[in-house]
Nucleic acid binder design. Structure first.
Ligand SMILES: NC(=O)c1ccc[n+]([C@@H]2O[C@H](COP(=O)([O-])OP(=O)(O)OC[C@H]3O[C@@H](n4cnc5c(N)ncnc54)[C@H](O)[C@@H]3O)[C@@H](O)[C@H]2O)c1
Ligand SMILES: NC(=O)c1ccc[n+]([C@@H]2O[C@H](COP(=O)([O-])OP(=O)(O)OC[C@H]3O[C@@H](n4cnc5c(N)ncnc54)[C@H](O)[C@@H]3O)[C@@H](O)[C@H]2O)c1
Lengths: 224, 224
DNA sequence: AACCGCTTGTGAACGTAAGAACAAAGTCGA
DNA sequence: TCGACTTTGTTCTTACGTTCACAAGCGGTT
């Protein structure tokens, strides 16, 4: 019955590991040495059984009767997420959103190095950005190849996203973070994650709609 | 065995409805009249059976042997998501990211009206933003209450997020979109969605890490 | 009207994830 | 050294989500 291979971490768990990592970094900063699953789960906003199960995929890290060594756990999670080596990234499309992303220090502090910011607009190319400069999109491939870039961030309009994606993939990028509202087609070996902000608001809208009709009543409003 | 109430749409489905809606809007613009589940699924990047099941929660909309009426389906999804009425929103924290969000026309075009942009920084208050002005955070409650705001967007630093959240909730906001890397505590009747961009990169990093060790082999590199 | 080809809507099988509950395994005090 | 106590790691159950496969239903054609 579908025994999970050791080292195979469920997708849902991976997403939460990133959250635990952030919480643990906060605890390290606060000089906390030991934390129990109950405490950590409370801070991370999850069920403690779920947290323990998540951590169990990384091996047996805690001490029964005591809890988890904060520093050790943080390192273990970081290494599971492949964060022991810095990852190089490029950003394509330095408009409104691209500027915000480029100016965010949280990426670098978490081990992500942006080695290039690209735009097609000649009016923007050369502009300073995050102690670097906006490069022309024509330089994309050479920068990606020279730096072994593995992650590409797309913040262009939707129409350009697939073209940009194809170029990134051809140049060797194997992970894409897409902010454009479009579905990207990629080869099997490439991972895509999308951030669809309008969709987020629409999902909230759905729940608002549901709430406003009263929770769980079968009342159908004005049919016919 | 847990029969699903009519009108109860699974969470995973709701998230995809937003995607279908966007695709359908594109089809309407392209004057497409009818679309089959196969076509629509291909564009939306999902399995066609999944798409049909998703749509089946909205009732029987398609015509067997033919497909779905694009306009009708679009309207049906929009109404299910509660997008027939415009939703009013406020944005708190008009820094890097907040500016990008405020300048984005895609929210308004999808039925979300921002009625206030708030910041605590006196140096920013009064600055023009998206044919409006940045307001002082002290005006938050009055604007929320006066406009019946249901959605609050938080783009402040993590430290301020919980405080801002509490104020939004107290003022009557029942849905929160949180960009700050922090876990928000809210009452049961309030929905929170978080957008954690650093976590997205870390998830991609995980898969990079996994890929670089070869897909699925049990090989452990350089232990000891 | 009867048939044919096509596409929907759904029931059943499968897979993944969440949560409850508890045995195992450790610490600490006597 | 022993026993009481605490918290982990895991098993088992239940819920949720995805995919397959096909009967049901519709439009067009003869
Ligand atoms: N700004 C937001 O808050 C927001 C919210 C939701 C979604 N988005 C999406 O994010 C994307 C970017 O949004 P934005 O507000 O920054 O838009 P923007 O128009 O301000 O910026 C887009 C940038 O991409 C550049 N560009 C266009 N084609 C390109 C190409 N082929 N190669 C390289 N660069 C190219 C443009 O020159 C421009 O600088 C859009 O797809 C938008 O729909 C943005
Ligand atoms: N910029 C990005 O690309 C990015 C990426 C990932 C996460 N984030 C997160 O999004 C949030 C905003 O990021 P940013 O880059 O815009 O930061 P920023 O510092 O540029 O902007 C934060 C704004 O919030 C305001 N603020 C602070 N406390 C406030 C309060 N109590 N009430 C109202 N306003 C307050 C500040 O005056 C400032 O204008 C942060 O939590 C950040 O971690 C941003």
């Amino acid at each position: 019955m579908s025994e999970r291979r050791p080292g195979e971490i469920p997708e849902a768990t991976v997403a939460r590991l990133a959250v635990y990592l952030r919480v643990l970094t906060g605890l390290v900063d606060a000089s906390t040495v030991i934390v129990s699953s109950e405490e950590l789960a409370a801070i991370a906003g999850v069920n403690s059984a779920k947290l323990r199960k998540d951590l169990s995929y990384l091996g047996s890290i805690g001490t029964r009767g005591v809890g988890y060594d904060v520093t050790l756990l943080r390192e273990k999670i970081a290494s599971s997420l492949g964060l022991t080596q810095r990852r190089t990234c490029v950003l394509v499309g330095v408009g409104n959103l691209g500027h915000a992303l480029a100016g965010y220090p949280g990426f670098s502090s978490r081990g992500f190095t942006f080695v290039g910011y690209f735009d097609v607009d000649p009016g923007r190319v050369g502009d300073p950005i995050a102690d670097s400069k906006i490069s022309d999109i024509s330089e994309l491939e050479s920068v990606v190849e020279a730096n072994g870039v593995s992650i590409g961030v797309i913040a262009t309009p939707a129409e350009a996203a697939q073209t940009v994606c194809d170029r990134l993939v051809d140049a060797g990028v194997t992970s894409i973070l897409n902010f454009a509202p479009s579905v990207l087609a990629v080869p099997d070996n490439v991972d895509v994650r999308k951030v669809d902000l309008a969709a987020e608001l629409q999902i909230l809208s759905f729940h608002e709609h549901r709430k406003s009709r009263g929770p769980g009543d079968g009342l159908v409003e004005s049919v016919g």
